[in-house]
Amino acid sequence: MFVNQIAVFLENSKGRLKECASVISNAGVDVVSMSIADTKDFGILRAITRDNAKAMKALKEAGFIVSSNDLIGALVEDRPGGLTEVLSTLDTAGIGIEYMYSFANIDAQNALILLKVDNEQLAIKVLKESGAKLVENKII
């Protein structure tokens, strides 16, 4: 039910994202999904790759600050209201979402959403109870 991601600190300067992407590609790693959180002074790149450990090692060697952590991965039906159902489940249980991003086209019927929440255990419990399909790294 967990999907591992890497997070990279990006100083807000021209070309920094490209440098980061080059390091990952030069390591021969394919990025499958990503999102960037940006503030005035810095950004955080969050990415899921085919080989997080390898990408992390390469980034560290290149001087980037990197961390990795697990996100909840849930399948959402690709139709109007699919996302709302999952979010309602979490909302009803009083769970806050720190951030989320999505991964489209995992198969023909579903999209994958990746969630960072403030109460992981409870989120997994209520999502499972609601019948949501949780996914793991290997599916990706």
Binding site: Q5, A7, F9, T39, F42, I44, I65
Partner: peptide, 15 residues
């Protein structure tokens, strides 16, 4: 300089 020890994937924590 930010260090790995205090880096987080959440903007909120860095702020």
């Amino acid at each position: 300089e930010l260090s790995e020890k205090v880096f987080s994937d959440e903007v909120k924590k860095i702020e």
